[in-house]
Simulated scan of single mutants.
Amino acid sequence: MEDRLKKDILLEAARYGNKILVTDELPDGQMVDQWERVSGDSVKTPLEV
């Protein structure tokens, strides 16, 4: 299941210039969306870590 999620993330990134949309929480509690650059080396399953 982890490998499938990694593949899905990399497929999505390939569609958007090697970026995925993530949500981050600011110190004041506000949620903001950000594009995060990813690569095959930066996306790891817990087993790979």
Rank of each mutant, 00 (worst) to 15 (best):
Y16N: 11
L5G: 01
N18F: 06
T45G: 15
P46K: 03
V22L: 07
S39Y: 04
D28T: 01
I9F: 12
V32M: 10
P27L: 01
D3H: 01
E36V: 12
D3F: 01
K7T: 06
E48N: 12
T23P: 00
T45K: 13
E2N: 08
K19L: 02
D33N: 15
L10A: 06
R4C: 02
L5Y: 12
Q34D: 04
D3S: 12
V49R: 13
G29I: 13
G17P: 02
S42E: 03
A14E: 14
D24S: 05
E25F: 00
D28M: 07
K19P: 02
M31K: 14
N18D: 14
W35R: 03
E25Q: 11
K44Y: 06
I20D: 06
E12Q: 15
P46D: 06
E25K: 00
M1G: 14
A13Y: 08
L26I: 02
K19D: 00
I20Q: 02
Y16H: 11
E12C: 10
E2W: 15
Y16E: 11
L21M: 04
G29W: 13
G40E: 15
D8A: 15
W35F: 06
G17L: 04
S42I: 10
L11I: 07
L47G: 13
L21I: 05
S42W: 08
R4E: 08
M1N: 13
D33L: 11
V38A: 03
M31W: 10
V32C: 09
S42N: 04
L11F: 08
A13G: 07
D24V: 08
A14F: 07
A14C: 06
K44N: 05
I20N: 00
E12M: 12
V32R: 10
K7F: 05
V43K: 00
K44P: 05
D3K: 02
G29C: 05
M31E: 11
A13F: 10
S42K: 09
M31C: 05
K19M: 02
V22A: 08
D33A: 05
W35H: 01
D24N: 10
V22T: 11
K19F: 02
K19I: 01
D8W: 02
G17D: 10
D41M: 08
K19R: 11
L5M: 13
L11T: 10
D28W: 07
T23S: 14
V38H: 05
D8V: 00
M31L: 14
L21Q: 04
E12F: 11
G40M: 08
G29S: 09
K44Q: 13
E25I: 03
